[in-house]
């Protein structure tokens, strides 16, 4: 019989993990909204950022979070360049399928370069607060999980404010909704879309640093992340950021709860089960708008 305390602890841990997943899936949703692109390299970029955080922390001895000062602008720039010079060159009619292969290629290049640079050895950041935990209503919550959840919540809140309150955010949403109309009111849609892509990749930088705190990393790990993340965006409804966030919280919690009876390997299948159920019951996802039905 599972004790109440264990259940409560798992629930908290699940919500914390779900929050992180929400941040990671937000980037994927953003790319899809902007260009109908399934960005398979997203998890590879997350891993790249995690490696940079690990490398920074192990060479300087400082906190891995400080690496974000460099990686966020860098990833923003990479995203802008990727959109401008790679994805925008694809033919619009075959964009979805070709972008999958293109970003798959980029993911392979990143995985290969990570392996060449730092070998296939498993790496882990050692932090002074790495093993400590706080007690909350009888549940033991590791500090690293709280830190990465806080980072995810902060980034999602900033993303929300950028999208809703700034001039750039309004232009980006207009571009996503109707590109031509956005042009007619004087928005430079190419530039805005490129910056939106950069924004998506910047979330990968934050997510990677947050994950590096609690995960053991190795070059082919990104395949284990991209599957759940893609399942989340389909369940939430392609193109819907709130949908992705809700699906992430729900699936993250279910996953951690299932780990009690099933073990961690089988618990991962919850994402794929949810993906198949969604496609059978409600193919457009649970929160998707008009975008999801067609793509």
């Amino acid at each position: 019989m599972v004790s109440g305390a264990l259940l409560f602890q798992s629930l908290i841990l699940g919500l914390l993990l779900g929050g992180l997943y929400a941040l990671l899936a937000a980037g994927l949703t953003l790319y899809f909204g902007i260009m109908r692109v399934v960005m398979l390299a997203h998890a590879a970029f997350i891993l790249l950022s995690a490696y940079v955080a690990w490398w920074f922390s192990s060479t300087t001895g400082l906190d891995p979070m400080i690496s974000l000062v460099a990686t966020i602008p860098l990833f923003f720039g990479i995203g802008y360049v990727m959109h401008r010079f790679l994805l925008a060159r694809l033919r619009p009619t075959t964009m979805t399928m070709m972008s999958v292969l293109l970003t798959f290629g980029i993911a392979l290049v990143i995985e290969g370069l990570l392996g060449l640079a730092w070998t296939g050895t498993q790496r882990r950041i050692h932090l002074p607060y790495g093993t400590s935990s706080v007690e909350f209503l009888g549940a033991q919550i590791p500090v690293v999980q709280i830190v990465s959840f806080a980072l995810a919540a902060l980034s999602l809140a900033s993303l929300y404010l950028i999208m809703k309150r700034t001039q750039f955010g309004r232009s980006l949403r207009a571009t996503i909704q109707h590109g031509q109309a956005a042009q007619l009111v004087g928005i430079d849609t190419t530039k805005v879309a490129g910056m939106g892509f950069g924004l998506g990749l910047a979330t990968a930088a934050v997510g990677g640093a947050a994950l590096s705190l609690q995960a053991t990393i190795y070059p082919s790990l990104h395949w284990h992340w991209i599957g759940p993340l893609m399942a989340i965006i389909v369940v939430g409804g392609l193109g819907s950021i709130p949908g992705a966030a809700i699906a992430a919280l729900a699936l993250g919690t279910i996953r951690v709860l299932l780990e009690i009876p099933m073990g961690s390997t089988w618990a991962q299948t919850v994402f794929y089960v949810a993906l198949f159920l969604t496609l059978m019951l409600r193919p457009q996802g649970f929160f998707g708008g008009r975008l999801a039905q067609r793509f």
Partner: peptide, 28 residues
Amino acid sequence: WAALRVRGASFVIVTIAIVLVMLLVFQS
């Protein structure tokens, strides 16, 4: 049947998911 109910992107996502889930199942 599940993968082709929607077009394009979801199809690709399901096809990748099926590989990852099979890897998981056959390893475990």
